[in-house]
Nucleic acid binder design. Structure first.
Lengths: 129, 129
DNA sequence: ATTCGTCGTTTAGTATAGTAAACTTAGTTC
DNA sequence: GAACTAAGTTTACTATACTAAACGACGAAT
């Protein structure tokens, strides 16, 4: 049952990254991790995590009187939604359009180019079947 | 002088697409084009175009008592901003991460795969220099 | 037992996008 | 010249993200 696409804000996404990386975490732990990059108030994190729970992105159970959160929606789903969104909004849905933009306008190391070549070769072979 | 990144909403971006496609247009014309896809009130378009002008994305001149708008910021710049945003928010800045996601999770025709292969080969050659 | 710290909850303020009605102004039409 | 129309402006409301202080509950420390 395709849930409606889950669109997340910048900080909401950072919170999800922590959950995906660490599995089960308290809000306090999330605050710590996010604060390594940029200071953020613990209450801010708590509020955002409640909104994430409201929209079904995360769940929690109480353990030792503290909420332990976990991601419900998988990383891939959110990645998918965000990517599709850019694709349709900016590139008219064209994967080619996006990739060619990346190759011509973004910094890509020649090492990365090499890995991409491998990837595309592999993909080409599979598509043949 | 690198202007701060211009982040646009969904409808704002659609408006910009019309300006980029058509060069000089009236708000009325934009309303018509957008309404082909989905109905939108003319006053909504006018309001959004004013906000776009406020943030320096578009400009206008008065012609025959009517505003004729044109894009100030080029398509590439906005495309760039939106792409970088996804890249950093979702893929940790990794172009490889995004491209591999595209190839494994998005529908890509084998014709497109072919064109992508050419593109990447060309890119590989240039990177060598 | 009173203070302290940590938790989660409530409340609240800012910012922005989107939406569109209401209003003002000024030509056009009869 | 009164009505109509089309353009732009003002105003306003909703929704969401982000931010964080303030608040209440409760176990721990002294």
């Amino acid at each position: 049952m395709a849930d409606k696409p889950l669109k997340l804000g910048k900080v909401q996404l950072r919170i999800m990254q922590v959950l995906w990386d660490e599995g089960e975490v308290t809000a306090r732990r999330v605050t710590e991790v996010l604060s390594e990059v940029e200071p953020i108030a613990h209450s801010t994190v708590q509020t955002l995590m409640r909104t994430l729970e409201e929209k079904g992105a995360v769940g929690h159970e109480v353990r030792d009187r503290t909420f332990v959160f976990r991601a419900i929606r998988p990383r891939e789903e959110v990645t998918e939604t965000a990517t599709r969104d850019l694709l349709s909004r900016v590139f008219g849905g064209s994967v080619y359009g996006l990739v060619s933009h990346l190759l011509t306008h973004e910094e890509v190391s020649s090492e990365e180019i090499g890995r991409l070549r491998e990837l595309i070769e592999r993909e080409g072979r599979e598509a043949k079947q």
